[in-house]
Write a protein that binds this DNA or RNA. Structure first.
Lengths: 186, 186
DNA sequence: CCTGAAGACTTCGAAGCTAAAGTTAGATGT
DNA sequence: ACATCTAACTTTAGCTTCGAAGTCTTCAGG
């Protein structure tokens, strides 16, 4: 199989440091420390989502469905929300929400019924099975999360939480250019 | 419009602390410090991706296209990769890669040609316009990133980078359960 | 009442993705 | 040479999502 030298680019992913080095090679005005933080944040999140996806898959639900369960549980008793509230909470269009609820009703995770006091509205309510799924997912997730952070000292955890919160505030209160609306989604 | 009391759940997104409180209410065995870190990581990333999306949109490209440009530039001169290498690098199926390249060829960001030394292979090469788009995107992105981190002291940046790298190593080298392959994607 | 307007979904059509099947070129064995 | 296998895309079918148009209920006037 005639290999074309120089074409066979890294099929294996570069390490974080290799990637930073490549950035510096191709783009002069770059603070490597900043780039390292940003790149690590991105990678870390992707890996974590993959891990969550594997866990929820073992429970027979998707990450998308887990998000809905989460929103309903966190809304508190009696675990009810309207489709549009859910859609806003999850950053979906109402159309996508309709279909997602369809699936979850079919799987018995939630029920959908009209609000009798205002027949325009629809009420999505968590079933016992849905709540149980959420609990199982939480048990798996917390084990994973504890494991992930186990190398960090109490001190480091405190600092990390504080710094991340600060960054979050900054990105929420000062969206950069393109002065559109800021964050209707979670 | 008759409101059903107790139904109208938070249309506005809860703050991080409100969310942690809700978790503790619904799930006893939870370390709030861990949950805060994880939740902040997730939110921060979503917000950042929205910001990147707005920036690339002003350049007339999507985040998806930006990812491809990034991979090609970081591969170094002569900015060429095969579709399957790109697909692995970006965590896409070959099918999705085919279509994405179709679009980018139509927009003049890359070229696609057969490798004459091995006619099974295809070579995707960055055009000058594609490289220029990447540069513009980088300029915008670095401004945003510097701005995001501006409140952090040099010390804090160092610690943050180091801690995130440590977490990344942990999630890469020790995927939790479901002993499948670990990380073919970036 | 009847009509018009607004709100809350739902339906429709198009885009982008995945999994699986299909194509085509090069490598292997006889 | 010829059949077979493998590699590297491309094509096809089905899903999920989005944006826009449509439907149904409620509310406000005339």
């Amino acid at each position: 199989m005639g290999d074309t030298p120089g074409l066979t680019a890294p099929t294996t992913e570069p390490t974080l440091d290799e990637q930073i080095a490549a950035y510096q090679r191709e783009f002069r005005d770059l603070d490597p420390q900043v780039e390292k933080i940003v790149a690590a944040l991105g990678r870390l999140n992707r890996r974590m989502n993959v891990a969550y996806g594997r866990q929820t898959a073992t429970l027979g639900i998707s990450n998308a469905e887990w998000e809905v369960l989460k929103a309903l549980v966190l809304s508190g008793e009696p675990y009810r929300m309207g489709p549009s509230d859910l859609a806003k909470r999850l950053g979906l269009t109402p159309a996508a929400m309709t279909h997602r609820i369809d699936r979850m009703v079919a799987e018995g995770l939630v029920t959908r019924e009209r609000d009798e006091s205002n027949r325009v509205r629809v009420i999505v309510e968590l079933t016992d099975e849905g709540r149980e799924k959420w609990l199982e997912a939480m048990r798996l997730a917390t084990v994973f999360e504890e494991d992930l952070l186990q190398d960090l000292s109490a001190d480091e955890r405190g600092v990390l939480g504080e710094v991340l919160t600060r960054l979050l505030r900054r990105v929420e209160h000062a969206q950069p250019d393109a002065g559109g609306r800021l964050s209707d989604l979670d």
